[in-house]
């Protein structure tokens, strides 16, 4: 038994080491995809999926429990937060006297991002929902099987 556990630890050394480095990198990459989405391939949905994959990789290297421990709040709460952010980004133009979900722009020709406005905020909401949904499903299944 003891030997098995040691073996497992040994087996996963490479995976764990790489996961330690890949996790921040992948998350950075997902954020990069998120913000460049307006001009180039990317966006909130893909960004969210990539970020979830980063956590999935981590949970494979260690265990879902250990990945979960990295979150100070449950990933489940990302879902309502994301929905709220998306909704508020749509509400923003209403405050400014335009109709719901009209684009509002704060700055144009920003490096990488392109035009920066309410659309990015909306995408951020989508990103959070996707991460929340995927991780919730994943952790729930791994906890219960």
């Amino acid at each position: 038994m003891e030997r098995n556990r040691n073996n497992e630890k040994l087996d996963k050394t490479i995976l764990r080491t790489s996961a330690n480095y890949l996790l921040p990198l992948l998350i950075l990459f997902s954020i990069f995809l998120l913000i460049r989405g307006h001009y180039l391939p990317g966006g909130g949905f893909i960004g969210g999926l990539i970020a979830s994959i980063a956590f999935v990789l981590h949970s494979f290297a260690y265990s879902p429990m250990q990945t979960l421990r990295m979150f100070s709040i449950k990933p489940f709460f990302l879902i309502p937060t994301g929905l709220l952010v998306s909704f508020l980004s749509g509400l923003l133009p209403v405050v400014l006297g335009r109709s719901f979900m009209t684009g509002v722009w704060f700055a144009e020709s920003v490096v990488v991002i392109g035009a920066f406005g309410s659309a990015l905020l909306f995408d951020l909401g989508v990103y959070m929902v996707v991460v929340g949904v995927v991780l919730t499903i994943l952790f729930t299944i791994s906890e219960n099987t």
């Binding site: 307006h38 001009y39 180039l40 929905l83 998306s86 909704f87 659309a119 929902v129 996707v130 949904v133």
Partner: peptide
């Protein structure tokens, strides 16, 4: 919509309402 990626502009702007409802479906 000040965006060069048409797919994404459709998702977040033209049909942003659909996207929002789809995120709700996901939730």
């Amino acid at each position: 919509a000040k965006g060069k990626n048409v797919v994404n502009v459709i998702l977040v702007d033209y049909r942003g309402f659909d996207t929002m409802i789809e995120t709700i479906v996901l939730s």
